[in-house]
Design a protein around this nucleic acid. Structure first.
Lengths: 210, 210
DNA sequence: GTAATCATACCGACTGGTTGGTATGTTCAA
DNA sequence: TTGAACATACCAACCAGTCGGTATGATTAC
């Protein structure tokens, strides 16, 4: 049903929102900014979204769908060993640090920091998006734990949150230092931690350090 | 020089800025918000600060001074063993998670995420503040490394950045989940990592878990 | 077959409230 | 008396959101 034309303006606005908000922050992003980036008029914007906040909600959901698909089709799922998949995830996160800062940083982390106290629904949408991602990750962590550290005192889920905390925090430093080097170093520490708690004192898989 | 009266309004504005910006974000914070929170008029604001951006710069510097003093006088510096001091730092960070979210989260992390692409000088000020804090921390890490892991492949500084990444990222999740529990769990993982890389397979100091 | 009706997508000038910043004082200590 | 510290009134720019209108294609009536 003419999906092409029907959705293109709305989708263009959503994609533009992801990029502009990640670069300028939510509050500093104007509706006109997004319209300009999407090459769409304001009239069209308010035809598709009730308000700027409504766009933020849609953008958060859109981001969740996008990233879910992106990570689901990533190659690190192939190994049969869940620990290998987990370490593959960490390596994959390091590999995708390319292009501009606003290309690889997380919309939800940016958004929630600005809105947590003032926009309850946006905060909730960010929480959901991030927690959903962690839930998927936690499945592998759970399996790896059963296999390699069944009696460890920590929960698989807390490891998932730890991994994401490292990423989100590293993104902040990437912004402060204007480059992804800090993220890579933090991911190396994170990988080492995972190797250690899963009882692999030497590398479980050959590191790809040059 | 009548420091009391001379500085009180300016200081009140700075303190108000720290709190309001951490709660609402920088862009969403209006000059009037800060004036109201400080119980000071707008005329006074623009007497002390050239602009809102100028206030942000001063607030970042003020934050740096405040936290430096705060951490310098914290009790975790007492042990002679640098590793104990380092683990003491992590435990201390967990202990101070009290009150409102905007009381214990980091101004610079919040600020830099909103301004990194649009306000170069604020970004630089945040970078400086965070890097200075890490530099102090790195002294203990360096000493601990010499003592317990002299040949480890990682640099002391990268551990400092890793620690701060965990904190900053955990703050984001604290905001998403509206409470510090996630931070405590991530700090527990962080502590475990430090114990592991410094070769203390069992706890170096008794954990204070209830 | 085609004219009338309706729905969706889109356009861009306009508006009313907000906001950073200014202009013009007043107070008061030294 | 001078100048720093405040206070009040005000302004111009900006911005989210509105509104009247157009273009286009589908549906229906006859």
């Amino acid at each position: 049903m003419a999906g092409q034309t029907q959705h293109s303006s709305k989708t263009k606005l959503l994609i533009a929102a992801l990029n502009v908000i990640r670069a300028k922050g939510y509050a500093a992003t104007t509706v006109d900014d997004i319209c300009h980036a999407a090459a769409v008029t304001k009239g069209s914007f308010f035809h598709h979204f009730k308000s700027k906040d409504d766009l933020a909600l849609s953008a958060a959901a859109f981001w969740g769908d996008m990233t879910e698909g992106f990570f689901a089709s990533a190659p690190y799922h192939q190994p049969l060993d869940p620990l290998e998949r987990l370490l593959g995830y960490v390596d994959f996160r390091a590999e995708i640090l390319r292009g501009e800062l606003s290309d690889y940083t997380c919309l939800l982390g940016t958004l929630v920091q600005e809105t947590y106290a003032t926009h309850p629904d946006i905060r909730a949408a960010c929480d959901k998006g991030m927690s959903d991602h962690i839930a998927i990750l936690t499945r592998d962590i759970e399996a790896a734990k059963r296999l390699y550290a069944p009696n460890a005192p920590w929960s698989a889920e807390s490891v998932g949150f730890f991994i994401q905390s490292v990423l989100q925090g590293a993104f902040i430093f990437a912004k402060a230092k204007q480059g992804p080097d800090v993220v890579r170093e933090s991911l190396a520490h994170l990988r080492r931690y995972l190797e250690l708690i899963f009882g692999q004192s030497e590398n479980h898989e050959a590191r790809k350090t040059p």
